[in-house]
Amino acid sequence: MKQIIIAFLVGGGICLLGQLLIDLTKLTPARILTAFAVCGVLLGAVGVYRPLIDFAGAGATVPLLGFGANLAFGVKRAVDENGWSGALTGPLTAASGGIAAVLLLSLLAAVIFKRGLNCKAAK
């Protein structure tokens, strides 16, 4: 239970930062998502994100910062294992599961869902 509350608080806090960016700056959602992913890489690289994940679990991995940090972890591991080539193979290897799932499911959704549902969405 304690773990769930910590995930709620940390995850909510990260989203709060995102909301401040939306409300106080003119940044578009695409820019904010990109900024979060890149910041995640940096935080993962300098070593502060791993402790946050250990502390908050899904509270740190579910926000897009976690996606970025995961890329950094993947690169580090790939370089440790394969040397220089790991810098190129590491990032997308780490992200491949999530990206493939998003692409596959979105394609499926586009095939399955009729526009009738999409039609109602605009009401």
Binding site: Q3, F8, V10, G12, I14, L16, G59
Partner: peptide
Amino acid sequence: GGVICAIGQ
């Protein structure tokens, strides 16, 4: 955001 992360946890 907190609820989504809590569900994740």
